[in-house]
Amino acid sequence: MATSAVARETVFALRRQIAKIEGTLPERLAVPAGERPRARAEGCLHAAPEPDSDVTIIRRGLAAALPDAFLATGIERLDAALSGGLPKAALSEIHGLETRNAGAVAGFVLSLVSLILKGQPLPVLWIGTSEIFREAGFPYARGLQGMFGIAPEQLLFSEAPKLTDALWVAEEAAKMTALAAIILEIRGSPQRLDLTATRRLHARAQNAGRPVFLLRQAGEAEPTAAPVRLIVSVAPATSRRTIAGPLAGSIGHPAFTVSIGKSRTALPGQFTLEWNPDEHAFEERKPREKRPENSVAVVPASGGRTDPAPAPGTVVAFPAFGSFPARDQPSRPQRPAHIGPRRAG
């Protein structure tokens, strides 16, 4: 009996360690009738007692977690699809398929950071390579304060010359509890950003209880240890809302198209979110809220003209080339200059 109990506890410990690395929930071994487990499972996200018993049950997949285990976006449909939101103590991947979406991906992550920083003065560390900062640039300090409510001194930057250095800085920073979150921005699909490297980041985030956001710019969707992958791109902004209605020709709040590429629930979904800089909160754009057509001419008329040219009338056939009468041929000095030979110099 003692040997079987020790073996059962060893299996429990191994399952807990595997579940911690993979970001899933372990399963409880079957307990023989009349015997209670000597040790309860630790590190689980959900535990519920059996009827007429105090045995801990650990379920896999859909589970009711602790209320503070996830970062809720405030969008009910998105949070439900993510089973509560983004995990706080985990590695989350925010993916941009094209380089032109770098601004949208950074803005979406800064929106999440704004939600995290509500009520706490801790700083955030943004790590990136020299390549990505040259390509996508740095966030504008004054824009951080006005758009996301993030003070410039709360956002720290670490520019690494190589990816190995950026990964080392991220792993060391993920162990610190003095940071509210860590952002690691990487361009492309480097070989060093493999499953082993992301597992190390995910384990450090779990141990510290802090989120680590992996920003993938212009890279392929590859296997990572992140339990959640969101694909973000820019969405067209609607007109600015006023008391009298939408203001034609204006630009409203920034908008993001967010697709769930991977999650614990494996539920797909696509959402159009707007960031409200005044409330520092997301708002979901309903499908019927389409961008109004622009009734203003794209190119204004010239100042010296009255009305644009009228629509063309009946199309007539022109005579074939070379059939013009001799009197209609232009004289030699009137021939276009480009017909003559090009002179060098």
Rank of each mutant, 00 (worst) to 15 (best):
T257L: 15
N207I: 10
A141K: 09
V228N: 01
G340D: 06
L144A: 09
I127M: 04
T73Q: 10
P341S: 00
V315K: 11
Q145C: 07
A141Y: 08
E42S: 12
L117D: 02
V315A: 15
A320D: 00
P139G: 04
V6R: 15
R285E: 14
L144K: 12
S92Y: 00
G345V: 01
Q154A: 15
A344D: 06
W126L: 05
C44Y: 09
I339M: 05
R335I: 08
T272A: 13
E159P: 11
A13W: 07
L112F: 02
Q145W: 09
I183N: 00
R343A: 05
T24M: 13
G340C: 02
A281H: 12
E222D: 08
L167N: 02
G304H: 11
F324H: 11
I260C: 03
P310L: 02
F70E: 05
I94M: 07
V169N: 13
R38S: 14
G345A: 03
Q191T: 13
S158F: 10
I57Q: 04
F133A: 10
S302K: 07
T177A: 12
V55M: 13
A344T: 05
A2G: 15
A65G: 07
A2K: 15
Y140A: 06
R200Y: 06
A174T: 04
V228K: 00
V234S: 14
G103H: 01
A235T: 05
R342E: 08
A65T: 13
A72S: 10
G252Y: 04
G313Y: 08
P67W: 00
D79C: 07
L156C: 13
A203H: 07
R204N: 11
A151D: 13
E283Q: 05
T242E: 00
A203T: 10
R200S: 02
A104C: 11
R134I: 08
L247Q: 04
A48T: 14
V299H: 14
F213Y: 04
V315I: 13
P37V: 15
Q191S: 08
P312T: 04
N101T: 08
V113Q: 01
S302Y: 06
E172L: 14
A317V: 11
G261E: 02
H95F: 07
P300D: 00
E172Y: 03
P227L: 03
H202T: 05
R343C: 01
E35K: 03
V31M: 09
E22S: 09
T177E: 12
T272D: 11
M176T: 09
T10A: 15
L110T: 05
Q154L: 05
I94Q: 05
S331V: 06
V6M: 15
A89R: 01
P300C: 00
F148W: 12
E35A: 06
E159W: 09
A309C: 14
A326Q: 15
E220L: 14
M176A: 12
I57T: 09
L45D: 06
T164L: 09
E283W: 06
S250W: 01
V109N: 05
A65E: 06
K88H: 14
I183E: 06
K175H: 14
V55P: 05
P333E: 02
L110N: 02
I251E: 04
I243T: 10
F133G: 03
L156F: 08
P333T: 12
R241S: 09
V315S: 05
R204F: 00
H280K: 10
A309T: 13
C44K: 06
A178F: 12
N276D: 14
A106F: 07
M1G: 15
G269N: 01
D307L: 12
K88F: 13
A106L: 15
